[in-house]
Measured scan of single mutants.
Amino acid sequence: KPRVVLAPEEKEALKRAYQQKPYPSPKTIEDLATQLNLKTSTVINWFHNYRSRIRR
């Protein structure tokens, strides 16, 4: 699969959402995906990867 490249404003929106709730509910994930015009799997993976990046 080709890698999804996020626009800077999409990254900022995801980071703001992460600061509010690092483990978002499925509803929140769905809303974010719709709002940013991304797949839910992309949003889920971003949160998973961002949490692991923060832990390093």
Results as ranks from 00 to 15, higher is better:
S25W: 14
Q35C: 06
K11E: 15
L6H: 02
K39L: 09
P8C: 01
S41R: 13
L36W: 05
E9M: 12
L6Y: 02
S41P: 03
F47V: 02
K11R: 10
R16C: 01
K11G: 04
A13I: 15
L14D: 02
V43K: 05
K15D: 11
I29W: 11
V4G: 13
V5T: 10
A7Q: 15
K15G: 04
L38P: 02
E10M: 15
T34Y: 05
V5I: 05
Y50W: 15
I29Y: 15
P2I: 15
H48T: 08
Q19C: 06
V4D: 07
K11P: 03
A7V: 01
A13K: 12
Q20H: 09
T28S: 10
E12I: 00
R56M: 13
S25L: 13
K39S: 13
Q19W: 11
Q35V: 06
Q35F: 03
R3N: 06
K27T: 05
S41K: 15
I44A: 04
A7T: 12
T34K: 13
L6P: 03
L32K: 04
Y18F: 12
Y18S: 08
A13S: 03
A13H: 01
K15W: 05
N45H: 06
W46Y: 04
L36F: 05
R16Y: 05
N37A: 11
H48E: 15
E12S: 06
N45W: 07
I44C: 14
E12T: 03
F47W: 01
R51Y: 10
N45V: 00
Q35T: 03
V43Y: 13
Y50L: 14
R56T: 14
R55Q: 09
Y18D: 11
L36K: 01
P8R: 07
P2M: 14
H48M: 05
V43G: 00
F47Q: 00
L32C: 01
S25A: 06
A33Q: 01
P26G: 10
V5S: 11
N45C: 00
K15C: 09
Q35N: 07
F47T: 00
Q19R: 07
I44R: 04
T40F: 13
P24G: 03
A17F: 05
V43E: 00
Y18H: 10
P26M: 15
L14E: 06
L6M: 13
S25G: 11
N49R: 08
L32G: 03
R53H: 07
V43Q: 00
V43A: 01
N37I: 00
K39N: 08
H48F: 00
L14K: 09
R51K: 13
K1V: 05
R55I: 13
E10N: 14
T34F: 01
R56N: 09
H48Q: 10
K27F: 04
L38Y: 04
R16G: 07
E10W: 00
Q20P: 07
I29K: 03
E12C: 08
A17W: 13
N37K: 15
R55K: 15
P2W: 01
K1N: 06
E9A: 12
R53K: 03
I44L: 04
E9V: 03
Q19T: 13
N45E: 13
Y23A: 07
S41Q: 13
I29Q: 14
L6D: 02
E12K: 05
P24S: 05
E12L: 05
N45L: 01
E12H: 04
R55S: 12
P2V: 12
R55Y: 05
L14T: 03
L6I: 04
K11N: 12
E10I: 15
V43L: 04
A13F: 02
A33V: 13
E30R: 10
L38N: 10
E12W: 03
Y50T: 13
I54P: 06
V43T: 00
Y23R: 10
S52P: 02
R51C: 10
N45K: 05
L38T: 06
E12N: 02
Q35S: 10
P26F: 10
E9T: 12
N37Y: 10
K21H: 01
D31N: 08
K27E: 08
Q19N: 05
S52V: 08
Q20G: 07
A33I: 12
R53D: 06
Y50F: 09
L14C: 00
T40N: 05
L32D: 02
Y50I: 11
R16F: 05
I44M: 11
D31S: 10
L38C: 07
T34Q: 06
T40C: 12
V4E: 05
E12F: 02
R56G: 10
Q20T: 15
A13R: 09
V4Y: 02
R51D: 01
E30I: 11
P26E: 03
Q19D: 09
H48R: 13
A13N: 02
E12Y: 05
E10P: 02
A13T: 13
V43F: 05
